[in-house]
Write a protein that binds this DNA or RNA. Sequence first.
DNA 1: CGCAAATCGTA
DNA 2: GTACGATTTGCGT
Length: 907
Amino acid sequence: MTEQKIPPVVLVDGSSYLFRAYHALPPLTTSKNHPTGAIKGVISMLRRLEQDFPGSKVVVAFDAKGKTFRHDMYEEYKANRPPMPEDLAMQIAPIHDIVRAMGLPLLIVPEVEADDVIGTLAHEATSKGIDVVISTGDKDMAQLVSDHVILNNTMTDTTMDRDGVVEKFGVTPEQIIDYLALVGDKVDNIPGVNKCGPKTAVKWLGTYQDLDNLIEHADEIKGKIGDYLREAIKTLPLSRELATIKTDVDLEFGLEDLGLPRQDDSQLIELFREYEFRTWVAELEKGESSEEQSSTSENASEPVERSYSIITDQSELDDWIERLKSSDLFAFDTETTSLRYMDAEVVGVSFAIHPGEAAYVPLAHDYMGAPEQLDRDHVLGQLKPLLEDPALAKVGQNLKYDKNVLANHGIHLEGIAEDTMLESYVLNSVLTRHDMDSLARQYLGEDTISFESIAGKGAKQLTFNQIELEKAGPYAAEDADITLRLHQTLSPMLEKTGKLANVYREIDLPLVPVLSRMEQRGTLINASTLKQHSQELAERMAELEKEAHDVAGEPFNLGSPKQLQAIFYEKMGLPVIKKTPKGAPSTAEPVLQELAHEHELPRLILEHRSLSKLKSTYTDTLPGLINHRTGRIHTSYHQAVTATGRLSSSEPNLQNIPIRTEQGRRIRQAFIAPEGFKLVAADYSQIELRIMAHLSGDKGLLTAFEKGEDIHKATAAEVFGVPVEDVSGDQRRSAKAINFGLIYGMSAFGLSRQLDVERKVAQEYIDRYFERYPGVLRYMDNIRKQAHEDGFVETLFGRRLYLPEINARNKQLQQAAERTAINAPMQGTAADIIKRAMIDVENWLLTEHADTARMTMQVHDELILEVRESALVDIRDGLVRRMSSAADLDVPLLVEAGVGDNWDQAH
DNA sequence: CGCAAATCGTA
DNA sequence: GTACGATTTGCGT
């Protein structure tokens, strides 16, 4: 790997700029008379910094309100400061808001000043070998300057390194504290030595080096000034202490905890509008349509010179293969005939070892007039030993896909050392897109060739084998090149935060081959029972439709919410119970449930809808997804989709197969085991509540789980104040809703709606709950607070979830973010746990039971295996044991397992 | 053909 | 009240 120069971290002393901007700039106001001069000064300064230090982490510190530890040392500290003018005070909150919207970490630590926060972070950075730029208007900070720390004053556009300090003050950075102690400070009310100014202080320190030595030789100083010095000896240690910027504040966070900058453009535009910074609004609005413009200028380092080759010559390929073999890491990508991995065939492969240099080896382009290419099977045969070598490290973008495709050619990809999609996902799961084009734009500031631009779009889109080599070559080679360069950018970002690197390396990366094998295995379904089921559903639906038309007095489309609205609310005049987000009267399930009391039509619609859903989504569709080669269905598990760390599944989505109704369960019954096998389904029991118990450390909850109590019953007993044995079914039901509500970050409003009780009653339940489980309350409060301070929350294993809207001024958005903040650590930790279990279980089965058992599905808290009948008990027990021990919590992880001929039975 | 909205299936 | 994906309709291109 190439050595990377880490950009310096920029620590901004916001408070010092605040005062200077206020005094230096004309008193601007908005049309509504809100003062904005200081806002404008501070923010334009920050924008300059972002430009001047591209790629740097920029952190902004402000003084907190109120007293500091220096007041404890010396109650006269800053006693001469006039109170802050009101029109300055009014500008502080807006500045904080804008800084947050700019995505910059904003540090306001109670009882210490911004200087001390900066001193501490600077110390941390340099101890890790990271250079520091302190941006401040305050000369006192000169004491922090060193070989790795420089000062920058953006307002005067000056920087000061070690030599600069000597030049400016006449003393070294190490002597600055003593210098300040001697000179004193009128405004801060630091006593110093009477009549001692800069000149005298420099002279003394030049002679005696430091304050202690000067004090020892105080009687050598002659004249009046000598008397003043001797008078001051008593207070000089205090002066020195007051002047010393702390570098060891207990911050409870470190540099690496201060998230990635994530500018919220829309928020920022709103704020700039509010304070009438029209140029900035225009700039952002222009930038938003082509976001890469701004990020290019911010992120792009030197443009990388590119040299891409298309290889159709055997000896050239041989050269590349030799180079690949001796590389430490190479980027690798396949081009294929289809995005569906089960059907896809390799069309070509590309490689890169060094940034900017990549090769594409076309193998199966078959358009009219395509140049002669190397023989696919021969080349793949040559590459097979490299691709299957676990010791030969590869990096790719979503290598699970490449691994699956290669398997179609009998190649079993090993040595998946890095995956840029997963690196990006672990760094920031909230970014919705982790495709290569987006990542290149975001992290490299590069615009990549889009697939559409070479293949066209829509029905006429070409497959890769139909694309001319002149177009395919640069596109494919770029994929490998960009992948390599992305890794070189993302990897250091990930490693900077140890915990995130761990999540990536210990959880998400090793899961890749596990998921790949599950996908390729697929699962067996009984198509004929599903088709039979479809038939029956169709018949029943026809009956319902006819009845509905009769009742309504006209034919209409039962599946059209719009037509339903017309019938219900316009024609029949039924009451509008709820509206859709867009304002139309809703015909959603709970609403119809309610309307069913008034009229018989809603009931017909409800039944029709639920049947139509089952039919169109499952019974009609699943048989068509059976792969002709394997006779099974093969889902795709997506590893970089959800914000919380869960997997998602598509084509088909196996994670929403019905279970709640009898009709639904018939669909599960079509998921079967092959001849001689049974299905084993094992699921974690109440895993999220157990995680809540662990994370909160609440005694009562921990004990309940420890004792193996029915947790909903136990909750009911506490909340309703009755003995466990007297808990009624209704009480247990309520308690269950409370428990779920807790996991979802509930409000009294939400709970009242769920339980159909008054909001006040729901609030009483919640209060009673928190009274009985105070640890949970503390935990909820803490997590909210943490989210507001850090802008992210994390799972037990350190996976992060950023909450860009946690400090939004729109309260709705903010509250939604708070609920996410509460839910994400629990949902995410559960996801981490089952992923760990999957890695463990797969490796166990592969090495010890390859012919008897295989994992085929995952549904968030459940794993499904096909197990040979002869080994059922062993495998089931081993599975339960491994799942239970996937994490070491303060509560037992209970796993329940069932066995059956189909998925429904196994439950 | 592509997209948003509404709806509903799961954990 | 959390987290997803698939389907259909209806509208605009």
